[in-house]
Design a protein around this nucleic acid. Structure first.
Lengths: 228, 228, 228, 228
DNA sequence: AATGAATGAGGCTTCATTCAT
DNA sequence: GATGAATGAAGCCTCATTCAT
């Protein structure tokens, strides 16, 4: 019934006299989001019933509908929280490097680590959000497009920098997204490879080569072990 | 798309003495499958109501449940019909060529043409079948794995033939599948590019390069026009 | 119990040239009845689906509805076959004796042996036929009433013969029927006692005493073992 | 018939500050039970549709399934409410007397009066609950066994008190139960005799004699119509 | 007589959402 | 803000029965 370790707002003790106990309100909302994340990842969107979220969050029907207008809304709120987070992390990683190859390394590592660390979010973003129909589809494609755009942006800058030859970066960016996405999904669904990060060396090589950047001739099996 | 051509007895044109009136049974089943294909593609799995299929197929509740034990079953029947069809077509295309590059060209062309021609099947296979939960998930991953295996098989033979360097073909095959898949999904959801086949040249170049096969330096925009 | 070999008409070999194979017709009907008996006893009236009967009888929907207008009809046909059979057997047993006590012994033994031998019929008659609603209820009460009437008839004759004192034989006959019925049901449902016939001595004593006939003072535990 | 007197909170007449609005919840549940009692008695278990109960109780589908997991559950809830009620009443009646004969009189009177007053409950308990299949059967036999055990307990005490001779009280108790049961069923189904209580004298005499207690030749209460 | 595909009314149950407290 | 009982539209599926062959 209570704050269940309010992740986000539990620490700033200053806000003692918030009007109408804002803390608890936020806490409830957060508990609902946490529960939703867990249940959606576990049972999928349609497999999840609002009561599941209520139960796991230890709140109530009324509480749920006070914070979210409907089931779809909490799902989208979840997605909307995840995407910018990941996007920002990738942006930061890229910005920290200057060499295109190093940038790709950094970005890839960020993506894989993020997904690797948050199975639940990953499932929601990459699996559960697919095939939902209605307004979901566009939402999802916009999300995917956003990732593709980030990749394309990176590629375009690489082209501009002369690091790679001019090419259809739009197409390539979607293809890259698809490739990365599939490996994550495989990991989520099949548990292969054991550690998601293990796909990094092979994936890196493949992507670089795909845009014309020669990769050292080392056999990937070798690299996989001591690369990073 | 609705071929109605009864698979089993399609050859004897006269068909005077159809044994056990198998004609009508198969025809009804086919009408149901056709309707299901249409409705599932349009509304998605959960958006589709059994009554929709009944109505479109112009049959009845009882008829539906006579032929399929439940809603899920007809969906899987659909998928199970599509996958082998596509797989066989690709196999055939590959078998018709001997040069690895030509094989990839042929396979890719087959895949894109097939999907391009059958929007509905494509949506069902690549979008609707995702995130369905239950026993669906494994089913889907098995399907994807099957395609990945086909790609890997191709790649392994290319390695054996010395056409490409040894590498982690498992990883690459999934990545390829993801890349191709994503471009088809984009086309389905966003309508870009207008004709799915237009992704062929760029995709082809990208994939070949990704495994270390140098592709002529022609800018892809150029090639797109007279390649194919 | 499922003789499949047409019980009723199987023997008169003369009827070779019956019009339109009457033999088979009756055989099918019998197969359906046999199957119905089995399935009704197993699953109860509502738990039984017509398809069950079809399957067990190895016939067809059409066949079923050719021989019986509906599900209810085959059930009633079953009951209507059983009741006269049992009634006649009891009548015969009674007629074979002249002493009232001997008559009761004979009748009781007949009833218990019949039920004991035909669990399925018993279940249908005494359990499944109860609480069916509709026109069933009256049918059932008529059946029970018929048995009660038989008992009353016996009692009345005993009264007339001076074997027992005048009393409300209507009431007693229903009570007797209820008592016997309950012991059979208990055996059917609980399997107690192991052999239905084992209730005979105790039941006999109780019934006789209930109408004022003194029974030998032997403790029933004793009698139960070597009486029969 | 519909007492609506909430069992749990019925005593505090003021009930101003009902905690957690338990009032309404219980009231709804009770309305559903009342409605179910009525409809089940009228139409039987299978003849009753959940919608009937909804309508009569003036509640809603959701309300029904909020209070009971399914149709079967409300039926069993009904039975589970009736049996202990009757059992307790009988126990009380017996405890109030010391003489075995007086005890039987009291118990019998209680049973017949209870059933006589609650036709609906009686029908549910003695008729509708029979032949329901599934888990119902055991439930029912347990119920019947409970009544039989009560009777047996009474008889055993009578034996111990030397009021009746040692005998197979298990068998007799079931037989008694069957006899009583049948007379009630007859009254329910055939309306004979007009007042259920009218079976008392005859039944009493028969039961007492059945265990060896001589009943005075006095017509009990004039011997019910002076025999038939 | 028999076959079995087809029909469709109707049943049970689910679950997103509302609302009085 | 929170609670949880109540609502009811809608979905899936069953199954007795019909009917063309």
């Amino acid at each position: 019934m209570n704050e269940h370790t309010t992740t986000s707002t539990g620490t700033d003790a200053g806000a003692k006299h918030a009007p109408h106990a804002t803390r608890d309100k936020d806490a409830t909302r957060q508990r609902l989001l946490d529960a939703a994340e867990q249940v959606f990842a576990e049972k999928g969107y349609h497999g999840t019933v609002v009561d599941d979220i209520i139960r796991v969050s230890d709140s109530s029907k009324g509480g749920f509908y006070f914070h979210f207008p409907n089931k779809q809304a909490i799902f989208l709120a979840l997605v909307d929280k995840l995407v910018p987070r990941l996007a920002a992390a990738v942006d930061r990683a890229i910005a920290a490097e200057s060499d295109p190859v190093a940038q790709l390394d950094a970005a890839l590592r960020t993506v894989l680590e993020t997904f690797g660390r948050h199975r639940q979010l990953s499932k929601i973003l990459l699996i559960e959000a697919v095939g939902l129909g209605h307004g979901f589809d566009e939402k999802l494609m916009r999300t995917r497009g956003r990732f593709a755009a980030m990749i394309q942006d990176y590629l375009d800058r690489a082209v501009a920098a002369g690091a790679i030859a001019p090419q259809d970066t739009t197409l390539v960016s979607w293809a890259w997204f698809g490739a990365i996405n599939e490996l994550v999904v495989r990991w989520l669904a099949l548990g292969q490879p054991e550690r998601l990060e293990d796909v990094l060396p092979g994936l890196r090589a493949m992507l670089l080569q795909s845009v014309g950047i020669a990769v050292s001739a080392l056999p990937p099996e070798r690299r996989a072990d001591h690369d990073a």
